[in-house]
Amino acid sequence: MKLCKKIYSLLFLLALSITVLGQGENQTVQMADLMRSNGRIYVVVAVMLTILTGLILYLVRLDRKISRLEKEIK
């Protein structure tokens, strides 16, 4: 479970760093960076991947919990 917490906090920090990057951009000249290219489709990709990782992490945790219960009951 410690590992899960670490992964969660890492993801949280990653998400934070992305938003901070976005804010820094506004004050300077608009650059053609990855997240702003192609009609900002990469933003959508980032959002969808975040949701997917969240759901998958939830499933993984459930899986582990059930495995632990199975061991206990055996």
Binding site: I41, Y42, V44, V45, M48, L49, L52, I56, V60, D63
Partner: peptide, 18 residues
């Protein structure tokens, strides 16, 4: 097969959009 599922879904979400 769970790992395979996750990898395929990540592939779907990125390549499916890009």
């Amino acid at each position: 097969w769970k790992i395979a599922s996750v990898l395929l879904l990540i592939y779907t979400f990125t390549c499916g959009l890009l």
